[in-house]
Amino acid sequence: MSELRFEGVTVRYGRALTAVDGVDLTVPSGQVVGLVGESGSGKSTLARAAVGLAEPADGQILLDGVPLHHRPGARRPLQMVFQDPYSSLDPRMTISDSIAEAMPRGPRADRRDEVVRLLELVGLDADRISAYPGALSGGQRQRVAIARALAGKPEVLIADEITSALDVSIQGTVLNLVRTLQRELRLSMLFISHNLAVVRYVSDIVAVMYLGRIVEVGPAHDVLGNPQHPYTKELLAAAPRRGSTSLPPPDEALVADAEPADPHHPPAGCRFHPRCPIGPLIRTDREHCLTLDPTAEADHRLHRAACHHAAGALRAVGPSPLMELKEDSQ
């Protein structure tokens, strides 16, 4: 088990786009951090920076307090499972070759035995060893991708939207597999998703990302049961809720339906203010949200919420939709 830590990490694409902006985030040893946010929030870019596929422009990424250095040919202590199981495996390589390619060097017979063990670990029959990816279903390919990541003996596993490309009928099976493997192997894991219900199911800690920044982070039960940032509340409200037919007031609906800001030109002040139901578009006395960045004082707020009014937003909001989802699934 190892701790993965991002300290002030910034990732830019060219001069125009800052995809990740000064992110501080810790994946504690042996725990699962669920990173959630809508498309374009910077989640996958942060993951790619961790495994060396994107170069940080600023900040550092540490493993057990030591800066990560991705050298060609060196062992990779972080392994990543990608979103699309149909493109993450080479169609010209057998399942055995794909998994063995990620293993440390060793005798050929030992490597074959390890491939068989890993296939069994992810719930696939050993007779699949000579099959090609084209002969497998999406769920089976994702299991192979997980086995391939484990073949590298990672200290931290990063799972990037690993169920979003799968049929709903098999998403739960893959999630159960990931949760079981994490507990049995005591892996540290960064689990990325846009689905809060999925994140709640597998995570010990939840971090919410918006326009390249972490806007709320804390224990999963606390963040999802008592969210402090308006964006987290919007994500929760978007989750299906049993028996709920109520609509927000017209003024709140107006900002809730607003398009996300252009990441090439993020808003000044609070980045969420053009969509915020408690911000200056609704409350004219909150013009400071237009100019003052709330991240500067986030460490002093509950869940490190990047919102000037996080403390003032505390109120009884009723049962979390995710708690109801969990009850429905039992």
Rank of each mutant, 00 (worst) to 15 (best):
E3M: 13
F6C: 15
E7C: 13
A19L: 15
V20E: 10
V20S: 05
D21F: 13
D24T: 04
V36Y: 07
G40P: 02
G40Y: 11
K43V: 10
P56I: 04
A57E: 05
G59D: 09
H70F: 05
P72N: 12
A74V: 02
R76L: 01
L78F: 01
Q79I: 00
Q83S: 09
L89A: 10
D90V: 01
D90L: 08
S96M: 12
D97G: 00
S98K: 05
E101V: 00
R108P: 03
A109D: 10
D113G: 12
V115D: 04
L119Q: 04
L121D: 08
L121A: 09
V122W: 02
L124C: 03
A126S: 14
A126N: 09
D127S: 11
A135H: 10
S137Y: 10
G139A: 09
Q140K: 14
R143W: 08
R148I: 04
G152M: 06
E155I: 00
E155F: 00
V156A: 01
V156G: 01
D160M: 07
T163R: 14
A165K: 03
A165G: 10
D167S: 14
L175R: 02
R183F: 08
E184G: 02
L190R: 07
F191P: 07
N195L: 00
Y201M: 06
V202G: 02
V202Y: 12
V206Y: 03
A207S: 13
A207M: 13
A207W: 11
Y210V: 11
G212P: 07
V215R: 00
V215Q: 01
V215I: 14
G218I: 13
G225T: 03
N226Q: 15
P227E: 11
P227I: 01
P230K: 12
P230Y: 13
K233T: 06
E234S: 15
L236H: 11
L236N: 00
R241A: 03
R241Q: 13
P248R: 09
P248E: 11
A258F: 06
A261G: 10
D262E: 11
P267G: 12
P277T: 09
I278W: 07
E287L: 13
A298M: 15
R304Q: 06
A305G: 04
A311C: 01
A313G: 13
D328S: 13
